[in-house]
Design a protein around this nucleic acid. Structure first.
Lengths: 239, 239
DNA sequence: CGCCCAATTGACTTAAATCAACAACGGTGG
DNA sequence: CCACCGTTGTTGATTTAAGTCAATTGGGCG
C-alpha cells in the first residue's frame, strides 16, 4: 500500500523493517477521490496527514482575482500534507488533479513515531524539507527562467520524481494534466504554455500529447532547462 | 544571545524554561561576519546549523547566466540553515546581506534535542515548515502578483517578521538592502524595482529611503499587496 | 450525436526588460 | 579635507517576452 512512499524514502536513506512496519501501522482509511477535489482547505484545523498512493495532486494558493498558483505537484508516494503535523493548519489548499487514491495518517500516530523512532522522524522531517527545496527550485524558475526553460524544467523534474517511484517507462511517463494546470504551475497563461509545448516539440526535446510525456532528447532537454537534480537529494546508494 | 530566536518561537508556541536552556546550551561560537559573505555554499556537507543573531541574510540560487534569485530573506532570530540538519547539504547558498552576527549549532546538539525534547523538536521542525510556507507565498508573488503588489507584499512581510523580534519601531524599520537586492528577491530588475518604489511612495503607501522603510498607510498597503499574514502562523496567544 | 472543455493559432496589447545617460552617495587615500 | 572612483539610484527611450482577445479545431464522453 505505502510501497511508493517507501520507494521515495529509500531513494534518500535506508528504512529498517521496524521503521517500515511503524509507517504501515499508522496508515488508516484508504479512499479514492475524483479529480478536482479539495482534499484540504487552507486554514482548516487538521488532525491527520494525507499520503498520496496513486494519482496526482497539488498545493495551490490563489489571489483575489481568482488566478491560482500551483506551488507544488505531488505524485504517488508523496505525503501531501505532512507539513500539517507541525503547522496544525495549512496556508494553502491541497487539490487532486486526477482521480487519486489516498490514505490518512493520524497525527497521533506520527507523534508516536517521533517518540519511538528518531531516525524515521528525521526522515519525515527530511521529506518536508525536500518540499521546501522543490519550492526554491520553482522560485528560481518563476523568477529567473524563461518560459521555455521553465516548462522544460518541469518535465525534467517530473521525469525524475516519477522515475523514483517506478512511474516512468523508459523516456516516457503518464501526465494527466491539462495545459491550464501546467500554466498554473509555471506562472504563465495556458496560451503561452501551448506555444512553449509546440517549441519543445519542434526542437525535438519533449513531446506532451494525449496525457503522455515523451522525452526525445534528455541531455538537450536538461541543458535547455538548466536542470540539475541535486535539489531532489538523491545521492543515497543503498548498501 | 538567542533572545530573538526565542521571541520568534514564542510568537508561535510556548517554550518551557527547560527547552530554552536546551537551546541555549547547544549554541557555540558567536562570530561576526561582513556583508556579502557566503555563510554556506550549495552542496557543502554540513555538521552545524547557523542561527542568525543580528543582521540580514538570504538563501539564493542562481542560473548559468549569473542572475540570482533570492528565495528567502532572513532576519535576526532565524535559523538560516536548520534545513541542513536533515538535508546534510544545501541546494542553495546562504549569504549575508549586511554585517551579521551568527552562532553555530552543531547537528550533534540538535540530535540530542530530538532525543530528549519531542515538543521542542516539533517546534524546530515547525520552523523549517514555516520557511516552506514563506516560500509558497513568494511563489504566489512571483507567479501571479504584479510587480507593484509583489514589492508591497515584501514590505508587509518584513514589517511583520521584524516586528515579531522587536525590530520594528512603530510603522518604521531598518532595511539595509539595495534595490538590486530587492530585485533579486522579487524576480524583477533593479530598474523596475526603482519605478515601483517611486509609485509606492507617490501613492503614499510606503517609503524606502536611506535604509529605512516607513509605512505610510498600513491598511492600504496590505490591500495593494493582498497581504494576509496567515502564512506566517502567528495565532499563538501565550497564557 | 452533440456538447463542453481543452488545445491551437493569429493579431494585437502591455508589463517589464533593456539600454543608456547621468546624478547621488559613500568610502578611501592623497 | 576633499578629490576621486565605484556602486547605487534615477529617469527616459525603446524593445521584447508574455499576456490578452478572439476565432477555430479537436477530443472525450454522456
Amino acid at each position: 500500500m505505502i510501497e511508493r512512499h517507501l520507494m521515495k524514502l529509500r531513494a534518500r536513506d535506508s528504512v529498517s523493517p521496524q521503521e517500515e512496519e511503524a509507517l504501515r501501522s499508522v496508515a488508516r482509511d484508504v479512499r479514492t477521490v475524483d479529480a478536482d477535489v479539495k482534499l484540504v482547505r487552507a486554514g482548516d484545523e487538521l488532525t491527520v496527514s494525507t499520503l498520496l498512493l496513486d494519482g496526482m495532486a497539488c498545493r495551490q494558493k490563489d489571489v483575489r482575482s481568482g488566478e491560482r498558483q500551483i506551488t507544488e505537484l505531488h505524485v504517488a508516494g508523496d505525503f501531501v500534507d505532512l507539513h500539517s503535523f507541525t503547522l496544525k493548519r495549512l496556508d494553502h489548499d491541497i487539490v487532486s488533479l486526477t482521480p487519486c487514491q489516498v490514505v490518512a495518517v493520524p497525527h497521533a500516530g506520527l507523534r508516536r513515531i517521533t517518540q519511538e523512532f528518531p531516525h524515521l522522524t528525521r526522515l519525515l522531517w527530511f521529506s518536508t524539507n525536500l518540499d521546501a527545496s522543490i519550492h526554491r527550485e520553482w522560485m528560481l524558475s518563476l523568477g529567473r527562467r524563461s518560459a521555455l526553460a521553465r516548462t522544460a524544467h518541469l518535465f525534467c523534474e517530473l521525469y525524475v520524481r516519477l522515475g523514483i517511484v517506478g512511474l516512468a517507462q523508459g523516456l516516457r511517463y503518464d501526465l494527466r494534466l491539462t495545459q491550464i494546470d501546467l500554466a498554473e504551475c509555471l506562472g504563465l497563461t495556458s496560451v503561452h504554455v501551448n506555444r512553449m509545448l509546440r517549441e519543445l516539440r519542434e526542437r525535438r526535446l519533449v513531446e506532451f500529447r494525449q496525457s503522455t510525456v515523451t522525452i526525445l532528447d534528455w541531455d538537450a532537454l536538461q541543458r535547455v532547462a538548466e536542470f540539475d537534480p541535486a535539489y531532489l537529494y538523491l545521492e543515497h546508494r543503498p548498501q
